[in-house]
Design a protein around this nucleic acid. Structure first.
Lengths: 328, 328
DNA sequence: TTGTACGCGTTATCAT
DNA sequence: ATGATAACGCGTACAA
């Protein structure tokens, strides 16, 4: 059995109350007693039990993170940033890989509840609003609308795609395709398609939408992309994420299309990973670190004061165009 | 306050014991009672408190994962696989990003202890053996030697580099460089350099080692690679990870070197990510999923039977050559 | 078949 | 300045 308060108390020749006081720096204690207790703790390598502690109503300093996957560099970088910030503040994270699995997400929600997490940062949403609402836990959401009283953080999806379209137009494109999810679900990311359609109207070009779902397999995406390139001959493609943009580049190469001469491509996300290992790709960069900072800040606010009204429901962070070879 | 056992008991008109029995399916209960309890649970949306449960001696069903980073696709995929397998078995994970930070790793170790995790899968090791040993917790290690009684899982690092060298030789290389960590620390990954040196002797070529540390910045790596390519004119490079291999390809392109005509490159890891988005790269693939399966299996064994002697200390899993364009 | 009472490790309240 | 004890929510021996 692990070392506990009683052991330390016995070793130091004081009561458990005193030891608890020393640890939590409560009330008045003589330096002599403090010293005795500290040395006893060191000697026994004592580590307080968080569980027993939070049984008393203390915070677990534990945050649940729900994301669809961590192998996608965007999520990996976002999660890593969130983890770093939370660690600084003394919080640990339970990582939940919801994939596209309603049941898994539901199971994880239960687990987080059972583990008395202090709050949840949600980035995957296979589930409906209600299930999140009835948790009765502080939640913040990334890029998805969950409920009226859950604050949303997202980048400026509209402005992002607008920048992308303008970049392609300025680079001389005439037949610009939108490659991404077609279904609108009331989420901030819907703004991407909306921006594309609006700009098509403003800039007077015919919109073409090639639909690939985030959840499609790479193989399926490749086939869709191949057909688009071969049959429709776009000279510009706006992709709603960088990975899909890379697939377009690969398929283009296979078809003997020269980038950027025959075809220009622009992505979305702007992760360090892709910028380092595919530096040729033009993209719209999301401010990943700022998103992480804001998500954490809002969550900790809600944890410390759950009933305070939200100033804002939806926080939109600015994006940045990173121009590179694929739209040169 | 959250719903607790007493609330359910009251609602169902039975004692807490009965409710507890229903939940854990213990002893004999009348169907009528069961039914009453179940409906009460549903109505109150009751969720047992893991903390109180494990205070009382039950397992937390929580595993700590310590890795240096999650943005590296190799770790991301390994962690994702581990997470999936553990989830199936009813375990949750606390993710610890140790980076290259001794203090952070130490702090995390304490936290894991405080949170009563059932065990640890360790893949980052800035710390010495002792600190892991005195935890008194079931541990398994990936690719690093921690302690005599901590089982290690790793791929066949020796065979991997041997395959890589042979592939380059067969592709006609004469001046083959080893690009990776030069320092030997008694870990399984040391076998990579050893294999290179041995094969140089066996196959009768002069070994050239270009040293880059895993922790070097991309910029620094690029400079080192650039100098190697420009000054030493290798015609083949064995890299100890895929990401570094991609950097070599990029620097080669900048220098106008044609791959594979002027220069052949082979990587190590073989993640799905790199294979999908850099399918041109030849590499040595680690069996990531098998590693995950084995790590979990060994850990759960040690959790259920901590004192059982290890059959083996070091489990070595086979690697596979994936031949592609960069060594064509 | 069901209920009472105690213990898990910690903190808070009340005493001394 | 320090100690005794109840309470947190749950599981379980023991009792009924």
């Amino acid at each position: 059995m692990a070392v506990k308060l009683t052991d330390v108390a016995q070793k130091a020749g004081v009561s458990v109350t005193t030891v608890s006081r020393v640890i939590n720096n409560h009330g008045y204690l003589s330096d002599k007693t403090k010293h005795k207790v500290f040395t006893a703790m060191k000697e026994l390598n004592y580590q307080p039990n968080s569980l027993a502690r939070s049984l008393q109503g203390k915070k677990m300093k534990l945050i649940g993170l729900i994301f669809p996957e961590i192998t996608n560099p965007f999520f990996a970088e976002l999660i890593q940033d969130i983890e770093n910030i939370l660690f600084e503040k003394g919080y640990k994270i339970i990582l939940c890989n919801a994939q596209r699995d309603k049941e898994k997400e539901r199971a994880y929600l239960k687990m987080l509840l059972a583990n008395q997490v202090d709050g949840i940062i949600a980035g995957a949403h296979n589930l409906g609003i209600e299930e999140y609402q009835e948790l009765g836990l502080p939640i913040v959401s990334f890029d998805r609308k969950l409920s009226e009283n859950v604050p949303i953080v997202s980048c400026d999806n509209y402005q992002g795609i607008k920048l992308a379209v303008h970049d392609l137009i300025q680079s001389g494109c005439h037949k610009i395709f939108f490659l991404g999810n077609k279904q609108l679900k009331g989420n901030p990311t819907d703004q991407r398609l909306k921006a594309y359609l609006n700009e098509a109207e403003n800039l007077n070009f015919t919109p073409h939408i090639c639909s690939v779902a985030f959840s499609d397999s790479t193989l399926l995406k490749n086939i869709t992309i191949h057909e688009m390139l071969q049959n429709d001959h776009p000279d510009g493609v706006v992709c709603t994420d960088d990975l899909t943009a890379i697939l377009v580049l690969q398929e283009a190469r296979k078809l003997g299309l020269k980038v950027p001469e025959d075809l220009k491509v622009i992505g979305f996300d702007g992760t360090k990973q892709i910028q380092t290992y595919h530096s040729e790709l033009s993209t719209i960069a999301q401010p990943i670190n700022d998103i992480a900072i804001l998500l954490v800040k809002l969550l900790l606010q809600r944890i410390s004061d759950p009933n305070k009204e939200l100033n804002k429901k939806h926080y939109i962070l600015p994006v940045k165009l990173i121009k590179s070879l694929t739209t040169a």
